[in-house]
Each structure stands twice: as structure tokens, then as C-alpha cells.
Design a protein around this nucleic acid. Structure first.
Lengths: 358, 358
DNA sequence: CTGAAAGCGCTTACAG
DNA sequence: CTGAAAGCGCTTACAG
């Protein structure tokens, strides 16, 4: 292993000068610097990260704390595009020469995060991006108190207290529902992508609820189905809804996979989509394209990018400021499944949407 | 930040004794140890990883080096279950209290791996698991020469020179093809899941080729289609094959997504699967289940686990031994798509397969 | 069983 | 512009 001493000896200078030259942290005579850099290049020197970290108190790495892959969270979360999140985070981090540490708690712990606290205490990373279905705000507070940068990526019920980046699931769901209402539907059902105590699910349900109530429609228990991340739950939901005395004419699917399940059921039972049942969904995944599902975008790539950017910003700051909450825009991509694709209808919806904005 | 000095002062001992007690690296009087541990617990002490790493020369972290997520490699590689790989690696690493570093080269570099060399030189990790479609063996050799542990996870053309863990794609493809031959097919086509210079593709093609040649069948150029990771390429392949003067009666799909594309085409054109076209594939993904595709398993979870285990073994070793190549078993899950599901047929195939083993 | 001391490879005041 | 020295927080011989 070639150390700074080797470079110093070979270049005939002190180790401080090598450090200054390499890091550009103090002026060094051009000829001296050139000589040093030549030796560095020749000997393939790279400063030992542990030694450097020990004195700078920085690891130059950021941790992404997520559920253990086995929990299938990214499949759950309304987007199985974990790669998109990773890509966004990775690109921003790489650009600033930060490393990415991937961590999760051992299986079994639900919202407890001992591993995270341990990593913070041993200073294994400079900051953490947390992406979980439910949060352990006690731990987060503990980290924040120690001035340890935390950014929540995805749903976050304590928005004003913690830095975060997410789409606005409530707003998206509200607009999805308004879209169906705008098409004339009154009997609209909702499939939750998971238990309602999960933040994403709660937000999506609330948006649906408020849009319905604003339209003067009451919520029917039999028009709510609590599903999970799988296609099968959409299939089951469709079975439930379509065998009711008075089936819904439209539904808000909790995620694209569920919408696919609904369509599979409809195809198998001669139900027309959107004729008998109009569908809007969340995610805008590849499946939405393939099945012609109208779906609102959840750009995990952008969420990852903004999350990493916010983290880097926090790391570059001396004093802490008030938490920041970044909202990534989303839009409903209208396809066949909702029956709102005809240009005339679209124009109406568009106008209505614009009016909503004002 | 609470350091070993704080603990030593509070417990009224020297820092060495604290270290010995905490790490169990030297005998400490029971009462002393109890007192120290109490203080450690009370003050929430966790040794600084950089300081520790500086002297032990270990980071206790392993790097997974993969293509940048944007390259969609895991979608390509015959299995988009990146989570499975992560889960396998993560579980084993967690168990031994190792951290996982995720790294890739900046976009643009293809098989060059400067980032990897940099991470090794600065000692940011103890070893690396490499999972790439093509390998930069010059870099790998460089790492190996420095006694830096390397394990290739997935395809590897230099098996005997580098540690690796993978399924045997050649063997799987050979058996897939034999399965179709066993069902009586003679006009069998092959769709490659990517360019033939990719190792996975080459292996799968070679297995197909050898099985065909052994059966005394010649390879027809028009029965080979070079696709990519997307469903669409299966659709296109089906279009190509089924509009030939003499269309194949069976085909080996390069991956499940392609098989899905083929089935989509068949459904849209009234072609019966397996009646007019029998299909076997690779991956055994959720899509294979949904579409009833006969597909050979690629257990990325197991590959990840064995990869991490091998890495840990290497890290615990003083002297280096000859490279080890772990093969993860695979089996063909027979479903409707190949027409080989009837028990009678299966019995034949089974018998034949057994005969092959002998 | 315990402590004083050296040292891991860097960065960073501090002198000059 | 350059160097000698202290020190980051640990581990690990070495004495006793």
C-alpha cells in the first residue's frame, strides 16, 4: 500500500506539502506541485479513506436505509422501480464523489431501527436517506438531535419536522378521482395498495375520500377494498366489486399492478374496460403502458435525485435550518382504461384541471 | 461524540482495558468488565469505524459493483429481480455485521472500471462482488494481484481464474433444448436475450447449439433471432419466425419477458401455444407463472447468498488458494407453454433426463 | 489482569 | 510556499 509518506519521500517534500498539493488546500509552487502529482500518478497513490475520515470526520458516504428487500416494499410502495430510485441517488452522489451505503434492519424489526443508530454512532456514514413504509420518528429525532442529516424519501407524516422528498400522493389521488368524476362517474370504488395505516395508502385514500365528499357523494363500505402489492389483489377486488348488486362504474386502483389484476378479471368475465368499468391508477409503470391503463406518474428517479441533492446540501451546511419538504410533480397519463381519452373529453378534463389549479 | 477515552475515564480504567473488554480480545476481570460494559451501555458508546479501520486495516464492508441502474442490466441479465440478489447478499453480510457498499462506474464507461480501482486503493471496502454483463479482466487481475478479494456474481468467461458464483447457463439451455427435442420437436428456434458477445447470451446460445447438433439437426440462420431485454423483442421474434415459409414448431426464449412477447403475438394472431409453437424459457419469473411459461429457475437470491458467503470466506483467509467456482442448481419448471405437462410425456422426459445424467 | 506507549495514514494549525 | 508537530480514535504489542 502506497502512503503519503512514500509520495513525500519520492518527491523530496514533506507530507503536508503532498497533502496540500493533492487536495489543493494550500498554495504550492507550480514546479513542486507538478513533481508531486507526477509521483502520485506514477505510484498510483490514493489517500486511505479511513485515515482521512478519522481527521476530517467525514466518510464521504451516504446511507440509503430501506426495508429489507425480502419485505418486497418497493413492490409494495406503489412502484417496484427500485432501480429508478437508486439511479437518481447514485447519479447525484457519484457526481460529488460520494459513496452509497445500503442498509436495512435485520428481518423482524418493523419500525425499529437499531442498525441505523449504530451506523450513525460509529460514524459509518455522513447522512441517511430513509425510505420506509412507516417511520420510527423517535429514532429520526435522535439522529436529528445529534445534528445527523436525515432526509426522508417517500411518504412522511411529519413533513414539517423532517427533511423530505416525495410526490404528493394525496393530491394525485384527489386528481385521479376528480378525473373520473369529470367523466360523469358517480359510483366510484377504491382499492388500497396496502393497509390504510401505511402512509402511502392513507394519503391515497384521503385524496379519494375528499374528492368524493366534495362532489357530494357518500363513501360506501362495499366500494373500498384493502389490497396489497400484488396483481392478485386487484383481481380479487374486481371480483368483489363486480359481483355487487350495484357495481361501481369506475375505480381508483391503488397501483398499476392492481389495475392489471382488475383488467385480467374483466377480460376473463366479459366486462368491458372502460365501458363497464373505468380505471385510473398510480405509478405509470411499464404495465400501465402495456395494458393501456391511465396512471399518474411517480417519478422515483426524480425523487432519488432530489433526495440526494437535498442531502448534499445539508452536508455542506454548517448551521441547521428548518426542515425542507420537496414535492416532485406528478401528472396523470390518460390512456384507454378510463374512457377519457377522446379529445373532446380530454379538453373538458383539461379545462377542469386548469380551473382546479387556480 | 463519545470516545473510548470517555468510557475509560468514567470507568476508571485505561483505554486498552476498555478495548479489551469491549472486543473480548484479552482477558479482563469480571468486575472490571461489568463496570466498563455498564458505562458503555449508559453512554451509548460505539467505536468509531474510521479509527478502528485505520489500525485493523479493515472496513467491514463489501462492495457490490454492478452496472449503473440506468443501463437496465438486471432487466437484461435474464432476471429483473435485483432485489433477490440484494437480499441474498444482504442477509449473509448482515449476519456477520458487514456493510454493503453499492457502486458502479459513471455512465459512459462500458467495461472500464476506474471507480472500482479507486475504491480498492483508498481501502473503502474489504472486497468486491462484481456483477456485470461483460468483465474487465485486466482490472480484476490488478485487484487480485493486490490480494484484494474478488468474487464474480453471474456470468464469467474466466471461471478458472477468478472466484465466481452462477447458474450454469450453458447447461440450462442445453437441457431446455433437450426438453423440446424430447417432445419430438425438430424445427426449434432460439431467441437470444441480447448480443451474442454477452456472456449470458453466448452460454445460452451454445447450450442450444450443442443440443441441436447432438440431435443431428442443423442450425438455420432464420431460426436465430437476436433480441434484447424487452418483451417487444419477443413479439418481434415471433413475428419473424411465424411468418417464415417453414416456421419453427418450438422455440427456446432467451428470457421470460421475451416468451411473454411471443405469447402476446401468438394470441393476437391466433397461433396456439403450445399447439403451433412450444416454448421453454429462462428465469422462472412471476411472468412465467402468470403466462404459464415453462421456465428454468435462476435463483438470484441463492447466487447472492453464495457470493457473499464466498466473499466472507476469502476475507477470513490468510493465504490465497485457487479460485473457487460455485454453481447454483437450476431446474426447469414445466408449465403449459411447452406442451410437455402431461404426466406421460413428463415421465418420458424425466427418464431421458435421468439417462443424460448418467 | 491492567496500563503506558507506539502507531495506523492522514489533515491542519502553526512557524518560519 | 514549505515543514515539523500535534492529533483524529482506535488496536496491539510490550511490561509489569
Amino acid at each position: 500500500m502506497v502512503t503519503i509518506k512514500d509520495i513525500a519521500r519520492e518527491a523530496g517534500v514533506s507530507i503536508s506539502t503532498v497533502s496540500f498539493a493533492f487536495n489543493g488546500t494550500a498554495p504550492v509552487a507550480p514546479e513542486t506541485k507538478a513533481r508531486i502529482m507526477e509521483v502520485i500518478k506514477r505510484l498510483n497513490y490514493q489517500p486511505n479513506s479511513a485515515a482521512r475520515g478519522l481527521v476530517t470526520r467525514k466518510t464521504n458516504s451516504v446511507c440509503l436505509f430501506t426495508p429489507h428487500p425480502a419485505t418486497d416494499f418497493f413492490s409494495f410502495s406503489g412502484n417496484n422501480d427500485f432501480n429508478g430510485l437508486l439511479q437518481g441517488i447514485g447519479e447525484v452522489l457519484d457526481h460529488k464523489d460520494y459513496n452509497l451505503l445500503l442498509a436495512w434492519d435485520s428481518l423482524g424489526h418493523k419500525t425499529k431501527t437499531p442498525k441505523l443508530v449504530k451506523l450513525m454512532r460509529e460514524r459509518a456514514m455522513d447522512g441517511v436517506l430513509i425510505c420506509l413504509p412507516e417511520h420510527d420518528f423517535q429514532t429520526i429525532e435522535e439522529l436529528t438531535e445529534q445534528n445527523f442529516p436525515v432526509v426522508i424519501v417517500g411518504s412522511n407524516s411529519q413533513a414539517n419536522r423532517v427533511n423530505s422528498v416525495d410526490v404528493d400522493n394525496y393530491e394525485i389521488s384527489y386528481k385521479n378521482t376528480r378525473h373520473l368524476l369529470g367523466l360523469g362517474h358517480r359510483r366510484i370504488a377504491f382499492i388500497s395498495p396496502g393497509p390504510l395505516n401505511y402512509l402511502v395508502c392513507e394519503d391515497r385514500y384521503e385524496g379519494f375520500k375528499d374528492a368524493m365528499e366534495e362532489a357530494g357523494l357518500r363513501l360506501r363500505d362495499d366500494y373500498l377494498y384493502i389490497g396489497d402489492e400484488k396483481e392478485q389483489s386487484g383481481y380479487k377486488a374486481a371480483e368483489h366489486f363486480l359481483t355487487l348488486k350495484e357495481p361501481p362504474t369506475a375505480l381508483v386502483a391503488g397501483r398499476d399492478a392492481q389495475a392489471v389484476g382488475v383488467i385480467d378479471y374483466a377480460r376473463a368475465h366479459g366486462t368491458s374496460v372502460p365501458g363497464d368499468l373505468a380505471i385510473v391508477s398510480f405509478e405509470n409503470s411499464a404495465a400501465a403502458v402495456k395494458y393501456g391503463i391511465s396512471s399518474a406518474t411517480t417519478n422515483l428517479y426524480e425523487i432519488g435525485k432530489e433526495g440526494a441533492r437535498l442531502m448534499l446540501k445539508l452536508l455542506g451546511r454548517k448551521k441547521d435550518r428548518a426542515p425542507q419538504n420537496v414535492v416532485i410533480p406528478s401528472e396523470l397519463v390518460v390512456r384507454e382504461s378510463c374512457g377519457g381519452r377522446s379529445s373532446a373529453l380530454n379538453a373538458d378534463v383539461k379545462a377542469e384541471a386548469d380551473a382546479d389549479q387556480a
